[in-house]
Design a binder for these strands. Structure first.
Length: 231
DNA sequence: AAAGGAGTCAACCGCCATTCG
DNA sequence: GCGAATGGCGGTTGACTCCTT
């Protein structure tokens, strides 16, 4: 027999699948009245035949008013790359550094754009590489502008500090170390200089799947591959 | 023009951590 | 202290759209 949930709606009657406009409306009204949280009460209070998890997900990923719509910008992409290199698949942590973007959005973006390891040089892969290479160069130009006045010695000091911090980060509470990205006036512009011949930077990018988890050494190597191209 | 592949997005599932009685 | 309820997160899937051949 069907079991009854606490709110009186039969477990087997939870609706699944795509949300309707009416369900969205009910959920938005509920949040306006009661605020976020208490998601399991939504079914009873808003008249929705959705479980709490489904309601929360719908709100967080789609209905929240502060969500940013549209494609991931080159700048956001560079932030994702950088934070993923540091934190791996901690999508919610990465999302906190990108206001208006959800962990789900970033996760989807990553999987479709960067999780291409192992596939050899098909035409699509080449296109993707070319596209990403341009983005990478954009990121490079950003960094160069930020460090315009610094000489190489200072740079190396920064790198050594960078590695030190990374090692510390891997053993401490990472949630308190959100990356602050300083933007330059050029940040939102599409500046696409000539492509360099050296494609070794891709070695780091295309093998990033291997860098997940706690392998800090590999992560450091990857970061070095990225950063070393700027000097 | 049609078929197949790739990209995109929304949603579900299972696990884990936290909260609460 | 313990167990159930709840919320949050990452992984995965499926449907739809767009692009290429």
């Amino acid at each position: 027999m069907a079991q009854y949930a606490r709110c009186g709606v039969m477990e087997e009657e939870w609706r699944k699948g795509p949300w309707t406009a009416e369900e969205d409306r009910l959920l938005v009204e509920y949040v306006k009245l009661h605020g976020e949280g208490k998601w399991n009460a939504v079914a009873m209070l808003a008249g929705l035949k959705r479980n709490g998890k489904s309601c929360r997900l719908r709100w967080v990923n789609y209905l929240r008013p502060d969500l940013k719509r549209g494609r991931i910008t080159p700048y956001e992409e560079s932030v994702i790359l950088e934070l993923h290199a540091r934190w791996g698949n901690r999508w919610s942590t990465i999302a906190r550094s990108l206001p208006g973007r959800t962990d789900n959005e970033i996760k989807n973006y990553w999987r479709t754009h960067f999780k291409k390891k192992g596939k050899s040089t098909s035409r699509n892969t080449e296109k993707l590489r070319a596209r990403l290479l341009k983005r990478q160069q954009f990121q490079q130009q950003q960094l160069q502008q930020q460090r315009y006045q610094q000489d190489e010695i200072d740079m190396k000091k920064i790198i050594s500090l960078f590695y030190e911090n990374d090692t510390k980060l891997s053993t401490s509470d990472e949630s308190s170390h959100e990356l602050v990205v300083h933007t330059s006036p050029l940040v939102e512009q599409e500046v696409l200089p000539e492509a360099p011949n050296d494609l070794s930077i891709w070695d780091g990018l295309w093998s990033m799947d291997d860098l997940h988890g706690n392998n800090c050494l590999n992560r450091a190597i990857y970061q070095h591959n990225l950063v070393s191209h700027f000097f």
